[in-house]
């Protein structure tokens, strides 16, 4: 596509202060929240910087992937990231760029007969549209990062492994045990087995509301994995309801040792590890 007409470029440069003023005026009416978030001092500096970079880059044409636009793109990415973190909507951030049109076009129109610079206006229009998309894309990227961080924070806290005694660890399971949580639980469990060299791992399932075929499968998988490391698994917290459903569903847990109470599970764990505690002395 055509480069920017030299004459237009000269005008844009000489009128930069007017454009800046008009642009800010539009921002004040359309994007109050954005201005609040940026702050007034910061706004002057940023709009000036942006406009200078933008007008410079315009002269090479409308391919914003070019090196000349690099600073402009980076500026907008940073701005968008910042605004996303501050919970501004993506359309308001995009309006920062789009409102440049409202400042440039009236000035150009006033300066010339409107038809003379149609090509240049189209070019500027196309560049601004593309730059608007840059802010939206960055918004999506930032959101994705935020969501991933939150997800990690959530899952990391959901599987505690407790060292109960020498060579004995316990995992209290609470809530639904789906595939992704099982995977996480397995990883955490095996890691603490490696760290503590625990010979027995107690999985307490009192906090799991429903044990269906799927959950039972996850438990067996966990026990098998622990066994491969050299650690025995004891499942505790299997009450009358759960044992009834399991048998009715035809779930075979015979490969895994289980007990009703945590107390019994612990007793068994002490037996397996050849340990005794004396009480009341």
């Amino acid at each position: 596509m055509a480069r920017l007409n030299e004459e237009v470029k000269t005008i844009l440069k000489s009128k930069q202060t007017d454009i800046l003023d008009l642009w800010k005026k539009h921002l004040f009416t359309k994007s109050k929240q954005l201005i609040e978030l940026i702050g007034l001092d910061n706004l002057n500096q940023r709009t000036t910087n942006f406009l200078t970079q933008f007008i410079d880059a315009l002269s090479i044409g409308d391919d914003i992937s070019q090196e000349n636009y690099k600073r402009t793109r980076e500026f907008l990415s940073d701005l968008s990231q910042e605004m996303t973190q501050k919970n501004l909507t993506p359309s308001e951030t995009a309006m920062f760029v789009f409102s440049v049109k409202d400042a440039i076009f009236p000035l150009l129109m006033a300066e010339f007969d409107g038809k003379k610079f149609v090509k240049s206006i189209l070019l500027i229009n196309s560049v601004i549209d593309q730059l608007g998309l840059v802010t939206i894309e960055e918004y999506l990227n930032s959101r994705e990062i935020i969501i991933r961080e939150q997800q990690n924070a959530l899952t990391e806290t959901s599987v505690p492994v407790v060292k109960v005694w020498n060579k004995i660890i316990m995992v209290p399971l609470v809530g639904m045990l789906d595939s992704s949580r099982t995977e996480l639980m397995l990883e955490t469990l095996l890691e603490s087995i490696e760290d503590t060299q625990a010979k027995v791992a107690i999985l307490d399932i009192s906090g799991i509301p429903i044990v269906d075929t799927l959950v039972a499968g996850h438990l067996i998988k966990t026990a098998t994995a622990a066994r491969l490391m050299g650690t025995d698994c004891i499942i505790t917290g299997i009450g009358s309801k759960i044992s009834q459903t399991m048998v009715q569903l035809g779930i075979d847990l015979s490969a895994v040792v289980s007990r009703t109470t945590l107390e019994d599970g612990l007793k068994l764990a002490f037996e397996i590890t050849n340990q005794k505690i004396k009480l009341g002395e």
């Binding site: 397995l186 095996l190 890691e191 998988k221 098998t224 491969l228 050299g230």
Partner: peptide
Amino acid sequence: LTGMRKEVVLTLV
């Protein structure tokens, strides 16, 4: 069989 690493175990599973 002794000392199987946790990554190896998870992969086998």
